[in-house]
Computed example of a mutant assay.
Amino acid sequence: MLAKLTFILAAGVVGAACVSAAYAAQPTNVSSQAGTEYVGALEAQARAQWREDISHIATPAEGCFHATYPSVVWERTACKAAIPRVMPTPRWRNFGAAQNAGNGNDYTLHSSTLITKAVGSFPTVTGVTSESGVGVAAYGGGGILGANEYSLQINSSFDDTTSACKSHSGCTVWQQYVYAPDYEVDGEAAVFMQYWLIGYGGSSCPSGFGSDGAGDCYKNSAAATAPDVPATQLANVKLTGTVSSGGNDTVVFTNGTQAYSSSGKDSVLYLATVWKVAEWNVVGNAGGSMAKFNSGSSITAKLAVTNGSTSAPSCVANSGSTGESNNLNLGSCSTGSGSTPYIQFTESN
Protein backbone atom coordinates (compact mmCIF):
# COMPACT_ATOMS: atom_id res chain seq x y z
CA MET A 1 0.00 0.00 0.00
CA LEU A 2 1.13 3.51 0.19
CA ALA A 3 3.78 4.53 2.63
CA LYS A 4 2.66 7.57 4.61
CA LEU A 5 1.91 8.53 1.43
CA THR A 6 3.28 5.75 -0.67
CA PHE A 7 1.26 3.05 -1.86
CA ILE A 8 0.87 -0.30 -3.09
CA LEU A 9 -0.95 -1.89 -1.19
CA ALA A 10 0.91 -1.81 0.19
CA ALA A 11 0.04 -20.27 13.87
CA GLY A 12 1.88 -25.51 15.03
CA VAL A 13 -0.75 -27.37 16.69
CA VAL A 14 -2.28 -29.98 14.43
CA GLY A 15 -5.43 -31.77 15.55
CA ALA A 16 -9.15 -31.78 15.15
CA ALA A 17 -11.30 -29.60 17.34
CA CYS A 18 -13.87 -31.25 19.53
CA VAL A 19 -17.24 -29.58 19.43
CA SER A 20 -19.04 -29.40 22.74
CA ALA A 21 -22.78 -29.41 23.20
CA ALA A 22 -22.56 -25.68 23.78
CA TYR A 23 -21.19 -25.26 20.26
CA ALA A 24 -24.19 -26.99 18.76
CA ALA A 25 -26.84 -25.46 20.98
CA GLN A 26 -29.43 -23.40 19.16
CA PRO A 27 -31.57 -21.42 21.60
CA THR A 28 -34.81 -19.87 20.43
CA ASN A 29 -33.33 -16.40 20.86
CA VAL A 30 -31.28 -15.92 17.72
CA SER A 31 -29.02 -13.13 16.60
CA SER A 32 -27.53 -12.23 13.25
CA GLN A 33 -24.08 -13.70 12.74
CA ALA A 34 -22.73 -13.23 9.23
CA GLY A 35 -24.49 -12.33 6.05
CA THR A 36 -28.03 -13.71 6.07
CA GLU A 37 -27.22 -16.65 8.34
CA TYR A 38 -28.77 -16.66 11.80
CA VAL A 39 -27.24 -18.63 14.65
CA GLY A 40 -27.86 -18.95 18.36
CA ALA A 41 -25.94 -16.93 20.91
CA LEU A 42 -23.87 -19.90 22.08
CA GLU A 43 -22.99 -20.85 18.52
CA ALA A 44 -22.00 -17.27 17.74
CA GLN A 45 -19.77 -17.30 20.82
CA ALA A 46 -18.22 -20.61 19.76
CA ARG A 47 -17.45 -19.27 16.30
CA ALA A 48 -15.91 -16.14 17.75
CA GLN A 49 -13.70 -18.28 20.00
CA TRP A 50 -12.68 -20.39 17.00
CA ARG A 51 -11.65 -17.28 15.07
CA GLU A 52 -9.53 -16.27 18.03
CA ASP A 53 -8.00 -19.75 18.37
CA ILE A 54 -7.15 -20.27 14.71
CA SER A 55 -5.38 -16.94 14.51
CA HIS A 56 -2.97 -18.18 17.21
CA ILE A 57 -2.17 -21.51 15.55
CA ALA A 58 0.92 -21.43 13.38
CA THR A 59 0.69 -22.67 9.83
CA PRO A 60 2.94 -25.72 9.33
CA ALA A 61 5.11 -24.24 6.59
CA GLU A 62 5.65 -21.36 4.23
CA GLY A 63 2.82 -20.91 1.76
CA CYS A 64 -0.96 -20.52 1.76
CA PHE A 65 -3.48 -22.32 3.96
CA HIS A 66 -7.20 -22.49 4.74
CA ALA A 67 -9.20 -23.69 7.76
CA THR A 68 -12.94 -24.17 8.28
CA TYR A 69 -14.80 -24.06 11.61
CA PRO A 70 -14.67 -26.00 13.88
CA SER A 71 -11.38 -27.54 12.69
CA VAL A 72 -8.11 -26.05 13.91
CA VAL A 73 -6.11 -27.83 11.20
CA TRP A 74 -4.57 -25.64 8.52
CA GLU A 75 -4.99 -27.24 5.06
CA ARG A 76 -2.60 -26.21 2.32
CA THR A 77 -4.11 -24.36 -0.63
CA ALA A 78 -2.69 -22.93 -3.83
CA CYS A 79 -1.04 -19.52 -3.59
CA LYS A 80 -1.37 -16.81 -6.16
CA ALA A 81 1.10 -14.16 -7.16
CA ALA A 82 -0.25 -10.93 -5.69
CA ILE A 83 0.38 -8.72 -8.68
CA PRO A 84 -1.28 -5.40 -7.89
CA ARG A 85 -3.82 -3.95 -10.26
CA VAL A 86 -2.68 -0.51 -9.15
CA MET A 87 0.98 0.37 -9.37
CA PRO A 88 2.85 2.20 -6.57
CA THR A 89 2.65 5.96 -6.38
CA PRO A 90 5.28 8.41 -5.05
CA ARG A 91 5.14 9.07 -1.35
CA TRP A 92 3.36 12.25 -0.36
CA ARG A 93 5.12 14.11 2.42
CA ASN A 94 2.14 15.88 4.01
CA PHE A 95 -0.44 14.40 6.34
CA GLY A 96 -4.00 14.03 5.09
CA ALA A 97 -6.84 16.23 6.25
CA ALA A 98 -6.94 16.15 10.03
CA GLN A 99 -10.64 15.28 10.11
CA ASN A 100 -10.12 12.02 8.19
CA ALA A 101 -8.41 8.89 9.50
CA GLY A 102 -5.47 7.52 7.58
CA ASN A 103 -2.68 9.03 5.51
CA GLY A 104 -0.67 9.72 8.64
CA ASN A 105 -3.61 10.83 10.78
CA ASP A 106 -3.79 7.49 12.59
CA TYR A 107 -3.23 6.11 16.05
CA THR A 108 -0.44 3.59 16.37
CA LEU A 109 0.43 1.16 19.14
CA HIS A 110 3.91 1.66 20.58
CA SER A 111 5.45 -1.20 22.54
CA SER A 112 8.58 -1.03 24.66
CA THR A 113 9.31 -4.67 23.78
CA LEU A 114 9.37 -6.52 20.49
CA ILE A 115 6.00 -7.46 19.03
CA THR A 116 5.58 -11.03 17.79
CA LYS A 117 1.88 -10.85 16.96
CA ALA A 118 -0.72 -8.17 16.26
CA VAL A 119 -4.46 -8.83 15.99
CA GLY A 120 -6.79 -6.25 14.47
CA SER A 121 -10.55 -6.38 14.95
CA PHE A 122 -13.64 -4.18 15.02
CA PRO A 123 -15.48 -5.00 18.29
CA THR A 124 -18.34 -2.62 17.54
CA VAL A 125 -19.67 -1.49 14.16
CA THR A 126 -22.89 0.51 13.96
CA GLY A 127 -24.67 2.43 11.24
CA VAL A 128 -22.60 1.08 8.34
CA THR A 129 -24.88 0.47 5.39
CA SER A 130 -22.49 1.18 2.54
CA GLU A 131 -18.87 1.94 1.66
CA SER A 132 -17.17 2.92 -1.54
CA GLY A 133 -13.53 3.37 -2.53
CA VAL A 134 -12.90 6.83 -3.96
CA GLY A 135 -9.81 8.44 -5.42
CA VAL A 136 -7.78 11.12 -3.68
CA ALA A 137 -6.53 14.01 -5.79
CA ALA A 138 -3.08 14.08 -4.17
CA TYR A 139 -2.52 10.57 -5.53
CA GLY A 140 -3.97 11.23 -8.92
CA GLY A 141 -7.31 9.65 -8.07
CA GLY A 142 -5.78 6.15 -8.12
CA GLY A 143 -6.71 2.96 -6.35
CA ILE A 144 -9.22 0.16 -6.74
CA LEU A 145 -12.41 2.15 -6.67
CA GLY A 146 -16.14 1.46 -6.34
CA ALA A 147 -18.59 -0.16 -3.96
CA ASN A 148 -17.06 -2.28 -1.16
CA GLU A 149 -13.51 -1.43 -2.22
CA TYR A 150 -11.45 -1.09 0.94
CA SER A 151 -8.46 -2.76 2.56
CA LEU A 152 -7.65 -3.98 6.05
CA GLN A 153 -4.07 -3.19 7.03
CA ILE A 154 -1.77 -3.94 9.94
CA ASN A 155 1.39 -1.95 9.32
CA SER A 156 4.76 -1.56 10.96
CA SER A 157 6.40 1.85 11.08
CA PHE A 158 9.03 2.79 8.54
CA ASP A 159 11.47 4.23 11.07
CA ASP A 160 13.63 1.14 11.56
CA THR A 161 16.45 -0.33 9.55
CA THR A 162 17.62 -3.94 9.36
CA SER A 163 20.23 -5.90 7.45
CA ALA A 164 17.73 -6.12 4.58
CA CYS A 165 18.77 -2.56 3.72
CA LYS A 166 22.27 -3.83 2.87
CA SER A 167 23.88 -0.73 4.45
CA HIS A 168 22.12 1.69 2.11
CA SER A 169 22.18 5.03 3.91
CA GLY A 170 18.74 6.24 4.97
CA CYS A 171 17.04 2.96 4.12
CA THR A 172 14.27 1.70 6.43
CA VAL A 173 11.96 -1.31 6.28
CA TRP A 174 8.17 -1.31 6.21
CA GLN A 175 5.91 -4.38 6.32
CA GLN A 176 2.17 -4.55 5.72
CA TYR A 177 -0.31 -7.34 6.47
CA VAL A 178 -3.19 -6.91 4.07
CA TYR A 179 -6.68 -8.11 3.17
CA ALA A 180 -7.81 -6.51 -0.08
CA PRO A 181 -10.96 -7.28 -2.08
CA ASP A 182 -10.58 -7.40 -5.88
CA TYR A 183 -6.84 -6.85 -5.53
CA GLU A 184 -5.80 -8.90 -8.54
CA VAL A 185 -9.09 -9.92 -10.12
CA ASP A 186 -12.68 -8.89 -9.57
CA GLY A 187 -14.60 -11.10 -7.18
CA GLU A 188 -11.56 -12.41 -5.26
CA ALA A 189 -9.82 -10.92 -2.26
CA ALA A 190 -6.10 -11.33 -1.60
CA VAL A 191 -4.51 -12.03 1.80
CA PHE A 192 -0.82 -11.24 1.69
CA MET A 193 2.13 -9.28 3.04
CA GLN A 194 3.77 -6.38 1.30
CA TYR A 195 7.43 -5.62 1.92
CA TRP A 196 9.10 -2.23 1.44
CA LEU A 197 12.63 -0.94 1.50
CA ILE A 198 11.95 2.77 1.93
CA GLY A 199 14.70 5.09 0.71
CA TYR A 200 16.78 2.22 -0.67
CA GLY A 201 17.92 4.49 -3.47
CA GLY A 202 20.47 3.53 -6.04
CA SER A 203 19.87 2.51 -9.61
CA SER A 204 18.35 -0.89 -8.89
CA CYS A 205 16.40 -2.74 -6.24
CA PRO A 206 17.36 -6.12 -4.75
CA SER A 207 16.42 -9.18 -6.74
CA GLY A 208 12.69 -9.82 -6.58
CA PHE A 209 11.80 -6.24 -5.65
CA GLY A 210 10.24 -3.69 -7.91
CA SER A 211 10.87 0.05 -7.82
CA ASP A 212 8.26 2.72 -7.28
CA GLY A 213 10.42 5.23 -9.14
CA ALA A 214 10.98 7.32 -6.01
CA GLY A 215 13.88 5.41 -4.46
CA ASP A 216 11.72 2.82 -2.71
CA CYS A 217 11.60 -0.92 -3.42
CA TYR A 218 8.69 -3.24 -2.82
CA LYS A 219 7.39 -6.75 -3.36
CA ASN A 220 4.45 -8.86 -2.27
CA SER A 221 4.39 -12.25 -0.61
CA ALA A 222 2.36 -15.00 -2.21
CA ALA A 223 -1.35 -14.40 -1.68
CA ALA A 224 -4.08 -16.61 -0.31
CA THR A 225 -7.41 -16.21 -2.08
CA ALA A 226 -10.38 -15.29 0.10
CA PRO A 227 -13.91 -14.09 -0.63
CA ASP A 228 -14.80 -10.45 -1.00
CA VAL A 229 -16.50 -9.42 2.25
CA PRO A 230 -18.82 -6.39 2.15
CA ALA A 231 -17.88 -3.54 4.44
CA THR A 232 -21.17 -3.98 6.29
CA GLN A 233 -19.68 -7.19 7.78
CA LEU A 234 -16.57 -5.63 9.33
CA ALA A 235 -17.64 -6.67 12.85
CA ASN A 236 -17.20 -10.30 11.78
CA VAL A 237 -13.64 -10.11 10.45
CA LYS A 238 -10.20 -10.19 12.02
CA LEU A 239 -6.69 -9.75 10.65
CA THR A 240 -3.59 -11.13 12.37
CA GLY A 241 0.06 -10.49 11.60
CA THR A 242 2.92 -12.46 13.14
CA VAL A 243 6.69 -12.49 12.92
CA SER A 244 9.17 -15.23 13.76
CA SER A 245 12.87 -14.51 13.83
CA GLY A 246 14.59 -17.14 11.72
CA GLY A 247 11.17 -18.50 10.66
CA ASN A 248 8.10 -17.37 8.80
CA ASP A 249 5.96 -14.27 9.10
CA THR A 250 2.23 -14.92 8.62
CA VAL A 251 -0.94 -13.02 7.84
CA VAL A 252 -4.30 -14.58 8.80
CA PHE A 253 -7.73 -13.31 7.76
CA THR A 254 -10.82 -14.76 9.43
CA ASN A 255 -14.46 -14.22 8.56
CA GLY A 256 -17.36 -16.20 10.01
CA THR A 257 -16.41 -19.88 9.80
CA GLN A 258 -13.46 -19.49 7.43
CA ALA A 259 -9.78 -18.59 7.86
CA TYR A 260 -7.17 -17.86 5.20
CA SER A 261 -3.41 -17.40 5.64
CA SER A 262 -0.19 -16.73 3.79
CA SER A 263 3.31 -17.18 5.22
CA GLY A 264 6.71 -16.01 4.03
CA LYS A 265 10.23 -15.87 5.40
CA ASP A 266 10.97 -13.22 8.02
CA SER A 267 14.38 -12.80 6.37
CA VAL A 268 12.77 -10.72 3.59
CA LEU A 269 12.87 -7.68 5.91
CA TYR A 270 13.86 -9.19 9.32
CA LEU A 271 10.91 -7.36 10.86
CA ALA A 272 11.06 -9.65 13.93
CA THR A 273 14.24 -7.88 15.02
CA VAL A 274 12.69 -4.39 15.19
CA TRP A 275 8.87 -4.54 15.36
CA LYS A 276 7.63 -2.26 18.16
CA VAL A 277 5.07 -0.04 16.39
CA ALA A 278 1.85 -1.19 14.72
CA GLU A 279 -1.04 0.48 12.91
CA TRP A 280 -4.52 -1.00 12.22
CA ASN A 281 -7.49 0.32 10.31
CA VAL A 282 -9.89 -0.04 7.40
CA VAL A 283 -8.83 2.29 4.62
CA GLY A 284 -8.88 2.64 0.84
CA ASN A 285 -7.90 -0.17 -1.49
CA ALA A 286 -4.50 0.80 -2.87
CA GLY A 287 -3.16 3.86 -4.66
CA GLY A 288 -3.71 6.31 -1.79
CA SER A 289 -7.47 5.93 -2.13
CA MET A 290 -10.12 6.57 0.54
CA ALA A 291 -12.75 4.21 1.99
CA LYS A 292 -15.86 6.39 2.06
CA PHE A 293 -18.51 5.20 4.54
CA ASN A 294 -22.13 6.38 4.65
CA SER A 295 -23.05 9.17 7.03
CA GLY A 296 -23.85 7.85 10.50
CA SER A 297 -21.16 5.16 10.46
CA SER A 298 -19.26 4.34 13.63
CA ILE A 299 -16.44 1.79 13.84
CA THR A 300 -14.46 0.79 16.91
CA ALA A 301 -10.99 -0.48 16.02
CA LYS A 302 -8.92 -2.62 18.39
CA LEU A 303 -5.32 -3.69 17.95
CA ALA A 304 -3.98 -6.22 20.46
CA VAL A 305 -0.41 -7.51 20.54
CA THR A 306 1.71 -10.27 21.97
CA ASN A 307 4.96 -8.72 23.10
CA GLY A 308 6.11 -10.61 26.18
CA SER A 309 4.65 -7.93 28.42
CA THR A 310 1.40 -7.34 30.31
CA SER A 311 1.84 -3.57 30.48
CA ALA A 312 -0.43 -1.30 28.49
CA PRO A 313 1.23 0.06 25.34
CA SER A 314 1.25 3.68 24.31
CA CYS A 315 -1.25 5.04 21.81
CA VAL A 316 0.38 7.70 19.65
CA ALA A 317 -1.56 10.07 17.40
CA ASN A 318 -0.56 11.30 13.95
CA SER A 319 1.87 8.45 13.50
CA GLY A 320 0.40 6.11 10.89
CA SER A 321 2.41 4.86 7.97
CA THR A 322 -0.21 4.00 5.35
CA GLY A 323 -1.11 6.45 2.60
CA GLU A 324 -4.67 5.16 2.28
CA SER A 325 -7.43 6.69 4.38
CA ASN A 326 -11.14 6.67 5.25
CA ASN A 327 -13.67 9.46 5.70
CA LEU A 328 -14.21 8.89 9.43
CA ASN A 329 -13.21 11.18 12.28
CA LEU A 330 -10.95 9.80 14.98
CA GLY A 331 -12.22 9.80 18.56
CA SER A 332 -10.07 9.35 21.63
CA CYS A 333 -7.77 6.36 22.08
CA SER A 334 -7.68 4.07 25.11
CA THR A 335 -5.19 1.39 26.09
CA GLY A 336 -5.39 -1.87 28.01
CA SER A 337 -3.00 -4.21 29.79
CA GLY A 338 -3.00 -7.98 30.25
CA SER A 339 -1.82 -11.00 28.29
CA THR A 340 -2.55 -9.17 25.02
CA PRO A 341 -2.05 -5.44 25.60
CA TYR A 342 -4.06 -3.27 23.23
CA ILE A 343 -5.14 0.11 21.96
CA GLN A 344 -8.72 0.89 20.98
CA PHE A 345 -10.42 3.87 19.38
CA THR A 346 -13.69 4.76 17.69
CA GLU A 347 -13.95 6.58 14.39
CA SER A 348 -17.22 7.94 13.05
CA ASN A 349 -18.89 10.47 10.79
Rank of each mutant, 00 (worst) to 15 (best):
G141K: 10
G143W: 07
G143H: 09
I144G: 06
L145E: 09
L145D: 08
L145W: 09
L145I: 10
L145V: 11
A147N: 14
A147I: 14
S151H: 11
L152A: 11
L152V: 09
Q153W: 10
Q153K: 15
I154E: 11
S156G: 13
S157H: 07
S157R: 06
F158C: 10
D159Y: 08
D159E: 12
T162V: 02
T162A: 00
S163I: 08
C165Q: 02
S167E: 03
H168I: 00
H168Q: 09
G170P: 01
C171R: 01
C171W: 00
C171A: 01
C171Q: 03
T172S: 08
V173S: 04
W174F: 15
Q175R: 13
V178S: 12
V178C: 10
A180G: 11
D182A: 13
Y183Q: 12
Y183R: 09
V185S: 14
D186N: 15
D186Y: 14
G187W: 13
E188I: 13
A190V: 02
V191I: 15
F192D: 07
M193Y: 05
Q194H: 09
Y195N: 04
Y195C: 00
I198N: 03
I198T: 00
G199V: 02
G199C: 04
G199W: 01
Y200P: 03
Y200Q: 03
Y200T: 02
G201T: 00
G201D: 03
G202Q: 02
G202R: 00
G202H: 01
S204T: 14
C205E: 06
C205D: 05
P206L: 03
F209M: 13
G210E: 09
S211L: 09
S211D: 10
G213P: 04
G213K: 07
G213F: 06
G213S: 06
A214T: 09
A214R: 06
G215L: 07
D216H: 11
C217R: 06
Y218E: 01
N220V: 01
N220Y: 08
S221H: 07
